[in-house]
């Protein structure tokens, strides 16, 4: 995938957009692709498990996080931070935008439709996990794509394959998703820009899948405490 100044991650809710946005921002910084990186959490739909959970790892690496003051609080207010506009105004930085799930989540970016439209250097990526309900077949994924594009007022430029079964994912689950994602790619007429996998699976997958992108999975502490020892 060619890195662009602005990258938007959108898709079915629970497809892994937040984890990918955080990992991609860290990658941009660590590989020295960009000096300044900003992550904007535009998820106004789900107040649970937000980009904010990764706030420490982002700020420690010198990445700016823009998120609603209400994220992870007890207030269920669909709010967006005013600073989000700086992603478009300050062109010296790379911006990573984490949108909320489905068409309802994608509505939030409508506020920035004009500015995003003017932006030439951009990737707008559809995150897909074929093991999630309601996004299991190319036809279902095509439907989600159209709904999001209509709500957001943009056109996707590529697909991110993030097919996984959570903590229990095996390498073959990722491998088995590749032919389905290839079908999705031809139906949607969009290139597969990357296939994501937990870094623990990279050794097994390297050489077998093109454009592999390793994810360090961030599990919020509350969830870690509920996992059995062999799942951590």
């Amino acid at each position: 995938m060619k890195n662009q100044r602005i990258t938007v991650f959108a898709g079915h809710y629970g497809s892994g957009k937040t984890n990918i946005a955080v990992n991609y921002a860290l990658y941009l910084k660590k590989e020295n692709i960009a000096k300044k990186v900003t992550v904007a959490d535009l998820d106004i739909v789900n107040p649970y498990f937000r980009t904010n959970d990764s706030a420490r790892s982002l700020t420690e690496n010198g990445i700016r996080l823009i998120s609603s003051a209400y994220a992870n609080s007890n207030i269920d207010a669909p709010a967006m931070a005013a600073e989000t506009m700086t992603i478009f105004d300050d062109t010296s930085q790379y911006g990573v935008i984490d949108l909320g799930g489905d068409d309802r989540g994608a509505l939030a970016i409508g506020r920035y439709k004009k500015r995003l439209g003017e932006q030439i250097s951009k990737n707008i990526l559809l995150v897909v996990n074929i093991y999630r309900p309601l996004s299991r077949t190319p036809a279902e994924i095509n439907e989600i794509k159209s709904e999001i594009e209509t709500a957001a007022g943009f056109k996707f430029t590529g697909i991110i394959n993030n097919s996984n079964l959570g903590a229990k994912t095996r390498a073959y689950d990722v491998l088995n998703s590749v032919p389905v994602i290839d079908e999705v790619s031809s139906l949607l007429r969009l290139p597969v820009e990357a296939t994501c996998a937990d870094i623990k699976l990279l050794a097994e997958l390297t050489g077998k899948i093109p454009d592999l992108f390793g994810l360090k999975i961030n599990t919020p502490l509350v969830l870690q405490n509920t996992l059995a020892t062999d799942e951590k």
């Binding site: 629970g14 996990n129 093991y131 309900p133 079964l165």
Partner: peptide, 14 residues
């Protein structure tokens, strides 16, 4: 086949 589900989705689908 296994599907990766949220608890809320699992209730609905079941």
């Amino acid at each position: 086949e296994k599907v990766l589900m949220k608890g809320n989705e699992a209730i609905a689908e079941a």
